[in-house]
Design a protein around this nucleic acid. Structure first.
Length: 243
DNA sequence: CATCAAACAGTAGA
DNA sequence: ATCTACTGTTTGAT
């Protein structure tokens, strides 16, 4: 791994701006309890660290397995290239009640917050100084479950707000690819960036990562255990359009 | 109107 | 013999 810069920064209060954010002014500076790795490439800005120790992560994982209720029925299907597919994972959204979230033409309403999710969310505020009002939970039952390349570029996201990706359970490869180096007509040759996301880890995806970089969780047949990933976001309240 | 897809299937190469 | 990475899909939504 020599094509991107990894910097150690245990104490750095904020990565991308000179001025403190409003949230920090309100809630105090973040207090990271673990050293973080900064991962940078052109247009990519990530911060990776462990958020929970082994014992606490184990406990949260079990709680998630017991208490999270995933979408069923229509909400587990996706229409792509003229065909309907069952998504190769389980998925659900939780969040503040007035929010909605749309992808691939389907609008989701979040389920109301539950204690285990608030526990994780509180820790994120404490450690990063950012607040979140919405979370997408994906459960990959084993290495066959996966998600294809995409960007988190939904309209409802607060512009430039970071996305916090928290992982529990099996460690899986996670791949970033630059939009200009995908497919046959690639205009540039930017090598993909591969990360491994460990049990209890946090990956902060900061602006402008999602403008230029696609990410995916590819199939890994040797992985037999489940992984639960939670992506916490900050969404805007959008008036529902009446047509 | 042009773009392009949170899916899979097929295939080549490791 | 697997497994992985890359290409194409071909149609409806934005």
């Amino acid at each position: 791994m020599d094509r991107f810069v990894v910097k150690r920064s245990a104490e750095e209060p904020e990565g991308d701006g000179k001025r403190p954010r409003l949230e920090e002014a309100a809630g105090g500076l973040p207090h990271p309890s673990q050293p973080s790795q900064e991962i940078r490439a052109q247009g990519l800005s990530l911060e990776y660290r462990l958020l929970f120790g082994r014992a606490e992560a184990d406990e949260i994982f079990q709680q998630l397995e017991k208490e999270v209720e995933y979408f069923e029925g229509e909400q587990t299907k996706l229409h792509v290239f003229g065909k309907w597919h069952n998504i190769p994972r389980k998925q659900v959204t939780y969040g503040d009640p007035e929010l909605t979230y749309t992808y691939s033409g389907v609008t989701f309403s979040p389920k109301p917050w539950i204690p285990v999710l608030n526990h994780i969310r509180d820790r994120l505020v404490l450690e990063t100084g950012h607040t979140f009002n919405f979370v997408v939970i994906n459960r990959y039952k084993d290495g066959e479950d996966h998600i294809g390349e995409h960007r988190d570029d939904e309209k409802e996201l607060v512009p430039r707000s970071p996305i916090a990706s928290v992982t529990f359970g099996a460690c899986r490869d996670f791949v970033f690819r630059h939009c200009d180096s995908r497919g046959k007509n690639a205009t540039r040759h930017i090598k993909p960036i591969r990360l491994q996301l460990a049990h209890g880890s946090l990956l902060m995806m900061k602006y402008p990562t999602n403008v230029y970089w696609y990410h995916s969780l590819p199939i890994r047949r040797r992985v037999l255990a489940p992984r639960i990933n939670l992506t916490f976001r900050k969404m805007m309240v959008v008036d529902k359009k009446v047509r």
